[in-house]
Write a protein that binds this DNA or RNA. Structure first.
Lengths: 165, 165
DNA sequence: CGCGCTATTTATAAAAA
DNA sequence: TTTTTTATAAATAGCGC
């Protein structure tokens, strides 16, 4: 049943689309209900079935839906349009956060690259084939690995000494 | 990381609830977006964060949300309240459907019970310990298993004959 | 059509960092 | 506390009846 990874685009095949629609509508309403119960949040979901005049909703009661809509339309501090901070500092913050994340990713990628190189070496790749620029980082990785190994050996030793079973 | 099966009830622990809320709000908005894109459905989700005046929504644009709400409030054949059939026959139908489902479940459970008994027997439980009332069903299960085995043996034989690799 | 199944993907609870 | 990771539960695509 070779289920392929979801491509997020309009499903052209009519029947497939219908089936998916039914499944996902149920899923969505269920998720809405769960969020409401688990976290005590005011939440509503309204779905219009295509080519029909039928709307399905959660909560199911028309009254409750109207209450939530009413709140939405009348709350002064509505939605995300009204921030506690001005637009510029908000954006600055966002950019900084993204940069930090990117840096972490890069670091992580670099580590993984190094691990791959180590694996290649262990599999017989000659050290001469490693790019010169990688050698420094490689050394760092190897040192850190050595430290880990020594640390674990020490723990193991302590364990064996204290619990000589 | 023993994640237990979700108990659908208000999460008392404040921190747990907050974390769950953030995750599930994101999940819910994402599911809403996916349904909309995959199936081309008009759909919206509105969430009020607890203890705040902030609402998060999908679609994000206030204009689009208002459009969907407007539809909801003005469509004549709104929602499930307007059925094509009268209430009584609808309920009768529902009850019958549920009963059928229950019967199927019972049957399935019975099968699983029998399989457990077979397992116990194979593990050395004496046949005398099996309840008398179960013996008949047990025989049925065993016969069906035997048929399956014979069927597969047959297939295997055909395969070997046709493709004598 | 709608149900049930199952391989996979996705979501997420809880632990670790 | 927030973030990341990990392991498990839940959703669901594709298929057959």
């Amino acid at each position: 049943m070779e289920k392929k990874k979801l491509k997020l685009q309009y499903i052209e095949n009519k029947n497939t689309r219908r089936v998916t629609c039914i499944k996902r509508c149920n899923g969505l309403l269920n998720k809405t209900r769960e969020l409401s119960i688990l976290c005590g949040v005011d939440v509503c979901t309204i779905i219009y079935y295509p080519n029909s005049n039928v709307a399905v909703t959660w909560p199911e009661s028309e009254q409750q839906i109207k209450k939530i809509i009413f709140e939405f339309e009348n709350k002064p501090n509505n939605s995300k349009f009204d921030r506690q901070f001005d637009q510029k500092s908000y954006l600055t913050q966002c950019v900084k956060k993204s940069k930090d994340k990117l840096d972490k990713r890069r670091e992580k990628n670099r580590e993984l690259d190094m691990e791959n190189i180590v694996t290649d070496l262990l599999n017989g790749k000659p050290i001469e084939d490693v790019f010169f620029g990688d050698l420094n980082d490689l050394l760092t990785v190897i040192n850190s690995k050595m430290n880990m190994i020594q640390h674990r050996l020490k723990l193991l030793h302590e364990n064996t000494t204290n619990n000589p079973l």
